[in-house]
Write a protein that binds this DNA or RNA. Sequence first.
DNA 1: GAACGTCGAAACGCAACCGTTGCGTCCTCG
DNA 2: CGAGGACGCAACGGTTGCGTTTCGACGTTC
Lengths: 187, 187
Amino acid sequence: MLRGDITKAIRNAVMHELAEVGYGRLSIEAVARRAGVGKTAVYRRWSNKLEMVLEIVSGVAERSVPMPDTGSFATDLQLVTFIVSKALQHRIASQIIPDLMAEAARNPKIAETLQRALRTHQLAVGEKIVGQAVERGELPAGTDPDIAVDLMLGPLYWRLAVARTPIDDDYLEKLAAAVLRALGAKA
Amino acid sequence: MLRGDITKAIRNAVMHELAEVGYGRLSIEAVARRAGVGKTAVYRRWSNKLEMVLEIVSGVAERSVPMPDTGSFATDLQLVTFIVSKALQHRIASQIIPDLMAEAARNPKIAETLQRALRTHQLAVGEKIVGQAVERGELPAGTDPDIAVDLMLGPLYWRLAVARTPIDDDYLEKLAAAVLRALGAKA
DNA sequence: GAACGTCGAAACGCAACCGTTGCGTCCTCG
DNA sequence: CGAGGACGCAACGGTTGCGTTTCGACGTTC
């Protein structure tokens, strides 16, 4: 019954509005205005701001970050850092993610959603590629996947989303190499 | 003429209010209410929300993070990670910093203030301890201080302020050791 | 003891947004 | 062709915050 093109326009408007003003200041009126839509259309789909944002954001987030399996830890790592760095340099994403992360610190529902949409998957990816690497003997047995993930994602996130310093391919290479050394990679 | 105890109460209220609701939702009315003070008292000191927050936050931020010089890169590194991890586990700070970081992405004045209050100092510390380590032969010549700082602060920030996963001393040790390896430390 | 400046409290007009409602239009079923 | 539903638009009463102003109560300073 609900018209799909309108739903799409609202979803789009929410993402842009989130990026521009953040969750705290996001208003349904502004979303409707931006989508060229009546407030009624919004309230017909979601019952409040929190529910709307969570549904839309998790919908977008869920379809990202592949599970690499290139046969070599070094290239797995390169692939992940490359993809994550691209994602974090996306204009909209790089605004929305830190904002929601900060908001999550005070809103448990947001925290839970982000946890499910991002962190869980990240840890799974980390565990898998580290596990494979250990089996292949590329990494020492007992390598902690958590630390591996933190070493990969931490600096990237820090640089791109927090410090917002531009990054070039050279930096990305150096970083990946440093992470390899940090984990005691043998190959 | 302005009473010092009142100024102090307002500064305190701003920090707590920032932590609870974030910059986006921070209102001067709530600050005054919390400080047990009239709005007049606030407006007599600062002319608007942005100016008030920037002045107060940078005042607090500037007096932190020492310049370590223990004679060994490993212990310098330990010291920094320890101090930063303590700071990021502080209840108020760990709420305010990510929030303002996110806000900085859309407000150049906030970005500039944070850059000056945090990043500049961090880079200076990084450059110094890396430079000393290189002179002592503990690190390879040509070690990039930027990457070193990112490798130290990135995972910590990621863990504590973003993922909000608790951290124990064991993790901290492993992390510091990993960073040492990443930088190719010899000693 | 008079003048001054800060203080809290309260109210001002203004604007934004909340979530809801009623209206008239348009489209799509059956 | 008629019913029903989603649509936009506009307005509702209520809340919140803005930045300003006025008031009387204190406390200094001279």
